[in-house]
Design a protein around this nucleic acid. Structure first.
Length: 568
DNA sequence: TCAAACACTTAGAACGGACCGA
DNA sequence: TCGGTCCGTTCTAAGTGTTTGA
């Protein structure tokens, strides 16, 4: 989003903004591109020309002296088998390779690619020794990092050349940056959480797998020598440039434009416009779902309670998933009885619902929320006579919910609530936390706090950084040292006071004041360090980037004259 | 009507370069 | 100069929501 905002500002698409989120327009200002003639409904482009994807480099065999060992004995592998062995060897340091599912999936897929002779020998993963191969890649990596400046510069220039050549396309006469112009290299599938397919072999993408999408009159990209494309088509109702089907989940992968492109930027703007329209009708929708809590129809009650959760807690919709194909994660509509616990009273609050489930990317959602009484009573009913593994909202599906939302407002779907609530939270927090006379540093702190409130709302988490423990220890050492200094200063002050009491000397009196000042200064420093430690600890599992990028309407940031703009 | 296919957005991990203080 | 930290970018998995077609 910020890249988009930058391009908006730099491109002067926003001219002399009035700094209010309501009247600020993305497209005002008479700058050419946003006013280009509107295309027919569903038509995304007239002209699309590009070079096709940049293919992952071919496998380079290991040097002779780097060996794979089976049962303690060196074993020369065929090229294809060796390549897959390197995928595993490169990951030896990673937690993935300690997981049984990962190991089993890898070993099964690896054996499929072996020659029959190799398959006859290699029957047990525990007898495979990849450590020498692993070390080879670690050393190679180190060597690359230690390269002299000029060598690094040379490598960078080569990468830039590829970026120049393959990283841009021509769309309706404009040069636009492509988001991912490289095919995904082969490797081992890294599914998140308890993914049943982790460790499976992700095969190399060949030109024969790739569908090219470009305009008829454009220069059709050349496939690499000796190869052909799977298909060349001209479909201007879609925005992708190339696509292929991956072999793990058999889903489509696309080469698409960078977020800085006009097409993506416009879509982004439209997303926030829908969220703004929701602002005008959300009170009506809330009144409606409150009414529906009392509906005669169980279907409607479930829909209304689910919508309350989506609105109040910014839960995702929760589409159905194919069992056994992915990690067991849920969203609102797919919640099961086992994911919530009802407490008529908890920690002094009434009607508390305790949520505990794995959401997108297997990130845990844990929350205790006091809900309105009818919601609590309804939940009790929904759970009655059900097993823990049964669906909480058994009469509800995302399609039903979205159909209902569509009737309430044009373009409204469950995900719009997340965008709306995230942006409105930012706006409210900024209003509450900032004063116009604040310094840049204070404003920045407030902005980060507001951003953090949004990240918490949306449950955007990250794994604790590897360096966290150590950096906390360093900080703690600083705190301890400062505490010591404070204690020493306290003693010094006491001594000075005693001296003054004994002598009543003016010089001794001045010394007391001096010591007091020093103590105060040290105490302030200690307090700052303590705040810093708390901040670090609280932030260790919160990811701020996703909300910044996908949920916060940049016009709110502009409207609040936030100093983050200075950092763009 | 429903599931599958498709197109697109949202997500955290990994990485790399800039910066900063010791 | 070195190591730690921060922050933006890249990568690709994992969602959402629409379309298609039986």
């Amino acid at each position: 989003m910020y890249r988009h905002l930058t391009s908006l500002l730099l491109g002067r698409r926003v001219h002399q903004p009035q700094f209010t989120p309501v009247c600020l327009r993305f497209g005002s200002g008479g700058c050419g591109r946003w006013e280009e003639e509107k295309k027919e409904d569903g038509i995304k482009w007239i002209q699309l020309e590009h070079r096709g994807p940049y293919f992952a480099p071919l496998y380079e065999p290991l040097p002779e002296d780097v060996q794979f060992y089976y049962n303690g004995k060196p074993m020369k592998l065929s090229l294809a088998t060796e390549e897959i062995a390197t995928f595993y060897a490169k990951m030896l340091d990673h937690e993935y390779t300690t997981k049984e599912i990962f190991q089993n999936n890898f070993f099964n897929d690896w054996r499929k690619e072996m020659t029959s002779a190799e398959r006859n020998i290699i029957k047990d993963l525990d007898k495979c020794d990849f450590t020498e191969i692993h070390k080879y890649f670690v050393d190679k990596n180190e060597a690359r990092k230690a390269l002299p400046k000029e060598e690094k510069q040379k490598l960078k220039e080569e990468a830039d050349k590829i970026q120049e050549e393959y990283g841009y396309c021509i769309l309706d006469g404009h040069r636009e940056k492509i988001g991912n112009f490289k095919t995904e290299p082969p490797g081992l599938f890294r599914g998140r959480g308890d993914h049943p397919k982790m460790g499976m072999l992700k095969k190399r993408i060949m030109p024969e797998d790739v569908i090219i999408n470009c305009s008829k009159d454009s220069k059709i990209p050349e496939p690499p020598q000796g190869h052909k494309w799977k298909e060349v088509r001209c479909d201007n109702t879609v925005t992708w440039l190339a696509s292929w089907t991956e072999n793990i989940q058999h889903t489509l992968k696309y080469i698409m434009l960078n977020p800085s492109s006009k097409l993506k930027g416009q879509k982004d703007w439209e997303k926030y416009e829908v969220a703004r329209r929701l602002k005008d009708v959300v009170h009506k929708i809330r009144a409606q779902y409150r009414m529906d809590w009392k509906s005669k129809e169980m279907k409607e009650r479930q829909r209304a309670v689910a919508l309350y959760f989506i609105d109040k807690l910014a839960l995702r919709a929760g589409n159905e998933k194919e069992e056994g194909e992915t990690a067991d994660t849920v969203g609102c509509c797919s919640l099961r009885v086992e994911h919530i616990r009802l407490h008529p009273e908890l920690d002094g609050q009434k009607h508390v619902v305790e949520f505990d489930f794995l959401g997108k990317d297997s990130i845990r959602y844990y929350n205790k929320v006091s809900v309105e009484e009818p919601v609590f009573k309804n939940l009790k009913r929904f759970m009655k006579n059900k097993d823990p593994a049964d669906e909480l909202f058994d009469r509800l599906k995302t399609s039903i919910l979205n159909k209902h939302l569509q009737n309430l407002m044009d373009g409204l779907t469950a995900k719009v609530f997340r965008t709306y609530n995230a942006s409105i939270t930012l706006q409210e927090q900024l209003k509450a936390l900032t004063n116009s006379e604040d310094s840049v540093a204070e404003k920045l702190l407030s902005y980060n706090r507001a951003n953090r409130a949004v990240a918490i709302l949306c449950n955007h988490q990250r794994s604790t950084p590897k360096t966290h423990e150590k950096s906390m220890q360093n900080l703690q050492a600083k705190i301890n040292a400062k505490k010591q200094q404070v204690e020493e200063a306290q003693e010094e002050l006491k001594k000075a006071e005693d001296e003054f009491n004994d002598t009543k000397d003016a010089k001794a009196g001045a010394n007391v004041e001096k010591k007091k000042k020093k103590l105060k200064q040290l105490e302030e420093q200690l307090s700052k360090l303590n705040v810093q430690a708390t901040d670090k600890e609280e932030n260790k599992q919160i990811a701020l980037g996703t909300s910044k990028l996908n949920y916060l309407d940049p016009r709110i940031t502009v409207a609040c004259k936030c100093p983050v703009l200075l950092h763009l």
